[in-house]
Design a protein around this nucleic acid. Sequence first.
RNA 1: CGGGGCGUAGCUCAGCUUGGUAGAGCGCUCGGUUUGGGACCGAGAGGCCGCAGGUUCGAAUCCUGUCGCCCCGACCA
Length: 596
Amino acid sequence: MPTRLSQLFVRTLREDPADAEVTSHRLLVRGGYIRRQAPGVFAWLPLGLKVRRKIEAIIRQEMEGIGAQEVHFPALLPREPYETSGRWTKYGDGIFRLKDRKGADYLLAPTHEEVFTMLVKDLYGSYKDLPLSIYQIQDKYRDEARPRAGLLRGREFTMKDAYSFDYTDAGLEQSYQNQRDAYERIFQRLGLEYVIVNADSGLMGGARSEEFLHPTPIGEDTFVRTDGGYAANVEAFRTVVPESIPFESAADATVFDSPETPTIATLVALANDRHPRDDGREWTAADTLKNVVLALTHVDGTREIVVIGLPGDRDVDLKRVEVAFAPADVEAATGDDFMNNPLLVKGYIGPWSTTGAVLGGDADGAPTSATGIRYYLDPRVVDGTEWITGANQHEKHVFGLVAGRDFVADDFIEAAEVRAGDLAPDGSGEIEVARGMEIGHVFQLGRFFADALGLKVLDENGKLVTVTMGSYGIGVTRIMAVIAEANNDDRGLIWPEAVSPFDVHVIAATKEPLTHEIAERIATDLEATGRDVLLDDRPKVSPGVKFGDAELLGVHTIVIVGRGAVDGNAELWDRSTGERQTVPVDSVVDMLTAPR
RNA sequence: CGGGGCGUAGCUCAGCUUGGUAGAGCGCUCGGUUUGGGACCGAGAGGCCGCAGGUUCGAAUCCUGUCGCCCCGACCA
């Protein structure tokens, strides 16, 4: 039986809801797919559920296709396994915690690595049981600091999470590749544009990690790519290191007075004014070495001051720094930090002074400088490059300071902002910077969880080996929003066929009994061929409203049975192109079911 | 957590400056007219004006506090 709009639990809204900003949120609420219940929490109405199930069906097919087995674990979980893995603490305010009547701690799972690991440990003990891939489609809960954009960042959301278990690295590689391939098929079937970028492994450590990003201006991730096929998350971007320059014949560094140079721009202006280059070129910000003082808080709580030196035309990208120093926390140095390090003269910081090294150390990293503070350099600051930088005296800078001669870093660091036009590390040219929404993530966890939770099996030699795992997530509900976001016009949604809530939307466009009878018959006949049909049989609703609702709801194929019915005609209306085609009523079903 | 905005009917909003019986449009119900692009007429139902204090003869309106929500940022396996 077709679904009758007159009976369907839905109410379309003529106006945009006041709390919806992004397109997908607006249209999904207006179309009666979802309703907001609490910030980041949504009720699913019949239409929304239908779309979601189509997405889930595709994911299930592809998971089964690679031999992953479906399970379903609780969303409500006890504290213990998360305590063991350390994530009860690590997640901080990010998870919903609750207590049962006895006062025992529970959480609403933000992700399920622990539970899967524990269950495999309970049931399996031999290498013969592996490899194993299991997955679930389950609601996840995260107490986001700021839920936003409707389904795109919710606090309750549905995710497909899969986990692979292997006892060899090669096995993990294979399992990972299987999932990765399945993801590509899933996104292709969903008609979703995606790029695969190298991701930072973040909280859980681990080896290979790739994100599937859907390029969109409202994306929360910044990534870079080249026409030559390179793509990476900015956090994972690696700077191309220039060739070193011989510096045997370089002139000595020269200290100069630099009053009133609070910024790089004023410093450059002063240098050009008083110490113009003799090669005719002007000094630029890129000739200066900017030294940024940061405070690290290590896992054990100790605080360490470090300095990062980078070309003056670049800013530090805090996210990239955090990744570089993970798991330590990073913040800007405070006034107290400067008080405690009087050798650092604010505004005139540099790795060198007339009395010798102030920052950095020798090649072994042993602190030999005056401060002993660890000094990190941007990879562009290769040996032989010459810089204008602070001389660690009030109102004094130095130029001609040569890297590798006058100062040495403890290490190099990817801390500088990444800019469009930078060169890709794989030689494929200049990068562009774009925004993307993460729709999938494949991740080699390695032995992190298995170690923490003691998941080991006996191998062929009877030796106990720690299992190596992968985790693979796809945001089901987020994908629905992303699809909606990518497929709409000013009149409403335009679902791709693969996820459309219905295959055909049949409209009885007049109030004459004849049109209703014909529409009814077409809908029933289409259903008999296996099509999923929505029939707008509302008896007293004007055609304009029905057309408007059809456009809002966004089923790609619409059949209008209206005033042409007396002549035996109906219309086929393509939602995406807007084209209408008059066809005999009797051929409608054939036309819509003919193989294409 | 920082910044900004908003809480009045199911939805979108006006009213608040200048205190005096709670409003509009859409939606919903009933009757009639209309009938291919969000029709019209008439009659209705529907509100603790976020909550709590205060000022006042009288508070949606003024004051204080509080809660909630939205947006930007920080954060975000």
